[in-house]
Amino acid sequence: MNFLKKIIMLVPYKLKQSHFVSSFFWMTAIMVTLLFFWMLSSIIGDGFQALSWEFIFDNPSDSGRSGGIAPILISTVLILLICSLTTLPLAIATAFLIAEFIPENHFFSIIIKRSLDILASIPSIVYGLFGNIVFCKMMGLGFSILSGGLTLACMILPILILTSEQTFRSISKAHRQGSEALALSKFTTLFQVYLPCAIPALTAGFILGLGRATAETAALIFTSGYVDRMPDSVMDSGRALSIHIYDLTMNVPGGSNNAYGTALLMIIILLITNSSINWLTQRWNHNLTAQND
């Protein structure tokens, strides 16, 4: 910041008042926007040629250079399913505990918060190493969809807890007095008051977490593996979409055409998740304001 300040200090007084400064900010924004569209257009342009219904429903052949990505989609979905089945209950329980039961400055709540901060900052490759020892080696799951899903579960746990905690805090303002006035037990409060009305916001947080999980590559390389066959069970190794892109670009000469297709598919998924998060959050805010009125 001092750097920025010094640059601005060099600008003579009169220039500061002119449009010079404002055009500097516009230029920055335009540059960022252009870079973004350069990237997006190259992926969309080449990706459209590869993307088709056959691409989605076919098996890959010739190490993925031709054919489709059906087994890869299935593996990805299975990994995400395992990941969400493990994290959701844990995340909601932890969030409910720290939002409702423990005062914010209680040592237990501080320890959990610090742990979450650390978990959120750990690089994904370290999660990959951890998953490799614990799930693949120690628990004997080997390179499998199950190991991959569990590793991702550890990784998205902090995001899910933080978003759900915010959700619970924002409802508790509206409902806490109400349910306490009725002397409802915490059990009833959680399952009959909070969960039903928090669904949109919890879902938004959940989709955000899943988005992160879908985007993840490094944590999966040594846990779910590379195999691009159709998985028979969750104990089989399965290749996720992101690993497919990585493998096609780095290890398979001439695989970039299908990598473009897969990348475009991932961007489409991203656009869908982003807009659904926006939509759900808007609905949630709308609900909250409606309650407060």
């Binding site: 960022v32 990237m39 985007a215 993840e216 590559t217 892109i245």
Partner: peptide, 24 residues
């Protein structure tokens, strides 16, 4: 509009950044 772009940039998987970097 600009905020949407920033949010999209935040969401794009790192492997796609790497892929784009390598091929473009």
């Amino acid at each position: 509009f600009f905020r949407r772009i920033i949010e999209l940039l935040a969401g794009i998987p790192s492997v796609i950044y790497g892929f784009w970097g390598l091929v473009v």
